[in-house]
Design a protein around this nucleic acid. Structure first.
Length: 573
RNA sequence: CGGGGCGUGGCGCAGCCUGGUAGCGCACCUGCCUUGGGCGCAGGGGGUCGCAGGUUCAAAUCCUGCCGCCCCGACCA
């Protein structure tokens, strides 16, 4: 294609509203324009790139025998009421009414619709397994869209659903997806980490997320450099560092002492001269309307997700100050478990075996010392603690790292949730009716592009992997007014086309600097520069990412470029 | 939903405090010039100053309300 005919509205300056790199570059490079908060138009370059990503996704899904479909984005309310998610999804669901007042919603995901199709048609174990997928627009009314295309209200997702007769079948479908996802992200040139993920309140036995390390991300993962253990922080476990000071010995009894104005763990530590790890942190939570006291070591913090799982609640929140006063007779900063009755008390496992610790006395400005769990109060032990960088790996003892990441894919063993609530059953070989076991699997298409930009960019712009760049190669005549250069550039361009290279000819009447800057900005991986050396029969082949160039003979240029491109594609973008 | 910031030409901004002709850089158009990293010169086009009220002889500027966008938090298949 000829650049002068294309709509590639690059900007010299970064739009003020963009904060993360991928957002800035997508705007500057003319890939996208914003229509509204969390709603974007994908212009020519973005669409080319997304279509390449989609092609890769489609090829790999087809390769595991998945069948592509296209489901509606507009769903009747009744379908979601059946699964119970009409209420569960709350304000995150876009809802509307048709002309006769019937309630509808825009699909956030498609478990319900897929299950509806399946229950209408699947009757026998002989029809299983099935893997169905689509690449389609999803709508989620995010409370706070942000970071360009990373968190939006309308986005493309590849979602697939597996239907199996039994758990072993689900395992196989899950494994197929796991491998397909690895191939997809490899081919898209991403560096990613597969982590164990939280299964969510809806249950399910297993879940993995595919994460790309980036400061633009919103998820934290924990990884062990020693043995490769990796998990979402919501689920990750670790061995806590030992307390900084040993507990006092002996059968001591709780003793109240005055701590005027000392509210935080740190203030009490300074006041007593004992480390934070010698205190019990008391957090008052409300789980499905019921007060629950969560106890942690003073220097540890609560994982709300772990807490939620431990109490088995749907909705969890910290208590309001008025509630704390009502239940404990004191304000936050002086609360503790001693003497608390009629309230569930959960203690983090790191408190097991500790003796004679310090905690709030449930009297403003007073604390207790010499408090021992199991003697001075009773609690249920469970894992409540959020993993911190530097904690020891439970498998190999190495210090763990905590990384910020973007989630690009998620695979999930659903189990029987939808087949049971919506009545998807088949007959087995022996003739009895059983629910079908399901899995669901998602890939965020735009997030692949964003993650690639976050991973591969420099001060001049994107350095996209060849596999997903909007073009593979640009041919740039330095001086179009120079007839020899212009003719050679056109000839090379045509040769590239005949070699099936996805090539762009920069035929614009611009100074070379402008053309180089633009090509770098939009991230074309290779460039053939036709300039002065043409007089000696030489042009230059430059790689965007490494900024290295090689001189090649004019007649070899297209073929050499193809070799470089093929080799790059073979090595993961 | 709470907190903060911002809405002035396509982009980046100044002007607002102290009311009085809407400005700068980039981009864009025309011509000349230039051609290996966002050239130079000359000329030119484009803005109901987010919207609606109000105050005033006079509002981008002051007041009130609303809307939109961004960031932090809350929230979050």
């Amino acid at each position: 294609m000829h650049w002068s005919k294309l709509f590639i509205p690059t900007l010299r300056e970064t739009p003020a509203e963009a904060e993360v790199v991928s957002h800035q570059l997508l705007l500057r490079a003319g890939y996208i324009r914003q229509l509204s908060a969390g709603i974007y138009s994908y212009l020519f370059l973005a669409q080319r790139s997304l279509l390449k990503i989609i092609r890769i996704v489609r090829e790999e899904m087809d390769a595991i025998g998945a069948q592509e479909m296209l489901l509606p984005a507009l769903h009747p309310a009744e379908l979601w009421q059946e699964s119970g998610r009409w209420e569960v999804m709350g304000d995150n669901m876009f809802r509307l009414r048709d002309r006769s007042g019937r309630e509808l919603c825009l699909g956030m995901t498609h478990e319900e619709v897929m299950t509806d199709i399946a229950r209408g048609e699947l009757r026998s174990y002989k029809q299983l397994p099935q893997i169905w997928y689509q690449i389609q627009t999803k709508f989620r009314d995010e409370p706070r869209p942000k970071s360009g295309l990373l968190r939006v209200r309308q986005f493309l997702m590849k979602d697939s659903y597996s239907f199996d007769l039994d758990a072993a079948g689900l395992d196989a479908s899950y494994e197929k997806h796991h491998r397909a996802y690895c191939r997809i992200f490899d081919r898209c040139g991403l560096r990613y980490i597969t982590v164990e993920a939280h299964s969510g309140a809806m249950g399910g036995s297993q879940s993995h997320e595919f994460m790309v390390v980036s400061d633009a991300g919103e998820d934290f993962i924990v990884r062990c450099p020693g043995c490769g253990y990796a998990a979402n922080r919501e689920k990750a476990v670790s061995v806590a560092r030992p307390p900084e000071a040993p507990d006092p010995e002996g059968e001591l009894v709780p003793e109240e002492f005055h701590t005027p104005g000392r509210k935080t763990i740190r203030e009490v530590a300074e006041f007593t001269g004992l480390p934070e790890s010698s205190q019990i942190k008391s957090l008052v939570m409300v789980a499905d309307g019921q007060p629950v006291l969560a106890l942690l070591r003073g220097d540890h913090s609560l994982s709300e997700t772990k807490f939620q799982s431990a109490v088995g609640a749907v909705e969890v929140r910290p208590a309001h100050p008025a509630e704390m006063r009502e239940w404990f007779g004191a304000d936050a900063g002086s609360l503790g478990p001693v003497g608390i009755k009629y309230m569930r008390i959960l203690a983090d496992a790191a408190l097991r075996g500790r003796r004679n610790m310090i905690c709030g006395a449930n009297r403003d400005d007073y604390h207790l010392r010499h408090v021992t769990i199991g003697e001075d109060f009773q609690a249920e032990f469970c894992d409540l603690r959020q993993v911190e960088a530097g904690d020891a790996c439970v498998h190999c003892g190495s210090p763990l790292e905590v990384l910020k990441t973007v989630e690009v894919g998620h695979i999930f063993k659903l189990g029987y949730k939808y087949s049971e609530s919506m009545g998807l059953r088949v007959l087995t070989e022996s003739g009895n009716e059983v629910p079908v076991i399901m899995g669901s699997y998602g890939i965020g298409i735009e997030r692949i592009l964003c993650a690639a930009i976050e991973l591969f960019h420099d001060a001049d712009g994107m350095a996209l992997p060849v596999s997903i760049a909007p073009f593979e190669l640009v041919v740039t005549p330095v001086n179009k007014a120079d007839a020899a250069q212009w003719e050679a550039a056109q000839r090379i361009y045509e040769e590239c086309r005949s070699l099936d290279i996805d090539v762009l000819l920069d035929d614009r009447d611009e100074r070379p600097g402008v053309k180089f800057k633009d090509a770098d900005l939009i991230g074309i991986p290779y460039r053939i520069t036709v300039g002065k050396k043409l007089a000696g029969g030489i042009v230059e082949l430059v790689e965007r990412r490494s900024r290295t160039g090689e001189e090649v003979a004019v007649e070899e240029a297209a073929r050499t470029a193809r070799e470089r491109i093929q080799s790059a594609l073979a090595h993961g973008g």
